[in-house]
Design a protein around this nucleic acid. Sequence first.
RNA 1: GCGGGCAUAGCUCAGUUGGUUAGAGCGCCAGAUUGUGGCCCUGGAGGCCGUGAGUUCGAUUCUCUCUGCCCGCCCCA
Length: 416
Amino acid sequence: MMNIPKGTKDVLPNDSYKWQYVEGVARDIAKRFQLKEIRTPTFEHTELFLRGVGDTTDIVTKEMYTFKDKGDRSITLKPEGTAGAVRSFIENGLANGVLPAKLYYITPAFRYERPQAGRLREFHQFGVEIFGAKGAQTDAETIMLADSLLKALGLNVKLFINSIGCKQCRAAYNKALKDFFAPHLNELCYDCKNRFEKNPLRLLDCKEETCKKINASAPSIIDYLCEDCNAHFTELRAYLDLAGIQYEIDPRIVRGLDYYTRSVFEFVSTSIGAQGTVCAGGRYDGLIEELGGNPMPAVGFAAGIERLLIVMEQTGVKIPDPAVPTVYLAGMDAECRQKAFEVATKLRLAGIIAEIDHMDRSVKAQFKYADKLGAKFVAVIGGNELSEGVMNVKSMATGESEKVAFANAVEYFFNK
RNA sequence: GCGGGCAUAGCUCAGUUGGUUAGAGCGCCAGAUUGUGGCCCUGGAGGCCGUGAGUUCGAUUCUCUCUGCCCGCCCCA
């Protein structure tokens, strides 16, 4: 028996409508904020992610699906959506078009990780990227968009924000961090000793108890923001207040991707175990230049669709039922089935959801089947009906029947 | 990459102190005197009891291995 690769999932017919619903809501919200969809390839040159995501990040160093293609090119399945969107933006000259470019995508992404609740090797993201706008108002709008999406999906989540500054203030802060941690260096965990050298920011992020105790009193990045970054962060908060969005400042969120600058944020749900971050993002003013474009500010986020669905499931959010047949046409014998087929065709061409028997079932069995499908009406066509040119239409909800001429079928079922 | 738990029907799970035809509920299919669903009743299909090895006269049951799944760490959406 062939089975599905580790860390992947089938979306079965009984669940796919949930995905369609979430994607539909996301597209709606995107439209409301005037974002346009961008679709980029599932794989890119490995180099793009090395430079875009950061070659010291965990994602790049140990989680990418990288392989050589038959032309000996190093190819990588996208581990996130931003790098590809930025590449496309630059390569297609969208930077010379109307700005800001407000984009969104729904894409699979791939990371070689140990699967667990809310974490798969192939997962799906709804992502948003806004290129060209530097003001905090745009950060606020991006957060507002994410907030609207989560609310539209009926989720109750908490928003945490922070600013991790720009290159200049980060340098000052890294120095302050090193000064703070230096005396504790041998109390820190193995990872943190490395972080101390390579990326002191990430020391704040450690989940080890002893490290947590130490970094609880570490200096806060917010106190080290340069004048511009500080003003930007203040402005962001003002705009969030203006939008009526509740948030909490968490100086410990630093994000695991190298490209972030200034604003970073996470929407966290407490109802799904360890992988509670349902949506996260921030500003990345250096990335477009890093990937070869002219310097241009950018801000965005990604939401994990599987995680959204898990939270919705756990909290009992109602998803609208999938479409059911307006009418099931039950034919009694071969001739009647043919008539059923004919009427169904007419109804379908008129946009009415109609279903017929495909299994040569008895009328009784057809009724059971129609009931399982959730059909609103069953139209019985037997010898008697055929000779009268009518079908016997039964409402499955009330149990009442009436005769409807074949000629009036479309008219009868329209808007039912 | 590290740690813990679990693998029996499509699903949720019993069970076998080692013994011949392995069970329930749900789901699926059909029937209940032949043209009508839901509830109830009856019947049916569907399992190499995760893989490989060991112990044994005999293993789904005991031991080990592998694999897979779940949960946590790490990381992230």
